[in-house]
Nucleic acid binder design. Structure first.
Length: 434
RNA sequence: GGAGAGGUGGCCGAGUGGUCGAAGGCGUCCGCCUGCUAAGCGGAUGUGGGGCUAAAACCCCACCGAGGGUUCGAAUCCCUCCCUCUCCGCCA
């Protein structure tokens, strides 16, 4: 959520930012709504003051045995006025709040202006794609031939966009999760932030307020799987429970940055994605993801964002997967984000780079919604923290990338060296019977 | 699921209708004292919004789990919901 004072201070700049985002919302009704609200609020406060004074006077006089019936009558009439004002006030407040919750974050100055994904500049490329002496197979073919990936059975269990991993496929998922978690909980000592990530295991079902806190609600409600019977929602990413871990609290500056890593299944309805990426592990209703979350100070958040992104890149480099980093332009950046880098891994069968991680700085957009603040050492007055997160990495897509990049002509797949210990020493997954 | 107890400031905890934004303690900060540290002594210390101001001081409004209600007046009484704890039952 944007700070209403920031909007008031420079509505032109905010409107400009919305335009850059290709967002058609206008600030006019927000501005007029806020103006009316503040007038109503002042009137209401004055009446409350009057009522409080009367109540105090009545109490005092009563103790002295004086007659207070006239004052009580007066107070009653003030109360009816307060009540009518209050209902109006509440209505206006809700209207304004609804509008504010639908306003996206303002992109950082360093974010390139652009219309859509075609305008996302590449920051850098690492690793070189292998050249294949044959037509490389897509990962779903490889997985099926190896007997480790089964979409047909998953469809019977749960419908489309679900998968079953079997044998070494399932083991590969576990190995990747463990490798990533180990890397992140081990990194940091030699970094500017000076500390490794703390691993957390969190609930996969959360209340709606948590999703509002991180920005998924109210705008993207239809993207979430719901359990209406219990008013709970399946998390679309670990970002939601992990960031909200510190909701409604004031942290000590000395605690910052707080760095978490969490491996969870993620659940997405993919409501707007009908017919898109219908094959393979790329777009599933359920997938495993290792998520990095930082809660940090505003002064360092952009340096921290670079560091977080480097941490995610470290996994791709460790696995030997070719990838590139792109910087999302104003027209493509996510609703809650002020700046986002996407990491895209090379997928040989399609001959394209595909998103495997998205690393964002939300500045105080989430922390204002979730009320996560810290007390600066010098000023003592609480300030909103900045929150960051990024995938480190999406495990399902990493499996897909490994199968495609490290496939061999005989149908086998070579396991990256760093994963071998996690695979129980297995260096290669081979087709059954070979 | 059944029975009971309870949710108060950064933390612990007192407070059953007005003088309570809230005793006391811990913590934190400032000062004093003291070879150092600790202890001791004195003072300060909730959050959000508004007014005034150069900035403060100061003043006003709201907040004692959330939302309603009763009342001139609610942390305190009533209702609903959420959560925590104890015991019993069930269970990975």
């Amino acid at each position: 959520m944007l700070d209403i004072r920031q909007i008031l201070a420079d509505p032109g700049a905010v409107q400009k930012a919305l335009q850059n985002r290709r967002e058609t919302l206008s600030l006019e009704s927000v501005l007029s709504g806020e103006q009316e609200l503040s007038a109503l609020r002042k009137r209401w406060e004055a009446l409350r003051e009057q009522r409080n004074r009367l109540a105090e006077e009545i109490g005092r006089k009563k103790r002295n045995g004086e007659d207070v019936s006239a004052r009580m009558e007066e107070s009653r009439s003030v109360n009816t006025e307060i009540a009518s004002l209050e209902s109006e006030l509440r209505k206006r407040e809700e209207e304004l709040q609804t509008q504010l919750l639908l306003l996206p974050n303002i992109p950082h100055d360093s974010v390139p202006v652009g219309s859509d994904e075609r305008d996302n500049p590449e920051v850098h490329r690492r690793g070189s794609p292998r050249s294949f002496p044959y037509e490389p197979l897509p990962h779903w073919e490889i997985g099926a031939r190896l007997g480790i990936l089964d979409f047909d059975r998953a469809a019977i269990l749960s419908g489309s966009r679900f998968s079953v991993l079997r044998g070494m496929g399932s083991r590969l998922e576990r190995a990747l999760s463990a490798y990533m978690l180990d890397q992140h909980t081990g990194t940091g000592k030699d970094r500017p932030s000076g500390k490794p990530y703390t691993e957390v295991s969190v609930p996969l079902l959360v209340r709606g307020e948590m999703l509002e806190g991180t920005g998924q609600f109210p705008k993207f409600r239809e993207e979430s799987f719901a359990v209406p019977e219990d008013s709970l929602f399946l998390i679309p990413t670990a970002e939601v429970p992990v960031t909200n871990l510190h909701r409604e609290s004031i942290l000590d500056e000395a605690e910052l940055p707080i760095k978490y890593v969490s491996c969870t299944p993620c659940f997405r309805r993919e409501a707007g994605a009908a017919g898109k990426d219908t094959r393979g592990l790329i777009r599933q209703h359920q997938f495993l993801k290792v998520e990095l979350v930082w809660i940090t100070r505003p002064e360092t958040s952009y340096d921290d964002h670079e560091e977080l992104t480097r941490d995610a890149e470290g996994i791709l480099e460790g696995l030997g997967l070719p990838y590139r980093r792109i910087s999302l332009c104003t027209g493509d950046i996510g609703f809650s984000s002020a700046k986002t880098y996407d990491l895209e891994v090379w997928m040989p069968a399609q001959g394209v780079y595909r998103e495997i991680s998205s690393c964002s700085n939300f500045e105080s957009f989430q922390s204002r919604r979730a009320e996560i603040r810290y007390r600066p050492r010098d000023t003592k007055k609480p300030r909103s923290v900045h929150t960051l997160n990024g995938s480190g990495l999406a495990v399902g897509r990493t499996i897909a990338a490994i199968l495609e990049n490290f496939q061999e002509q005989d149908g086998s797949v070579t396991i990256p060296d760093v994963l071998v210990p996690y695979m129980g020493g297995v260096r290669r997954i081979s087709p059954p019977g070979s």
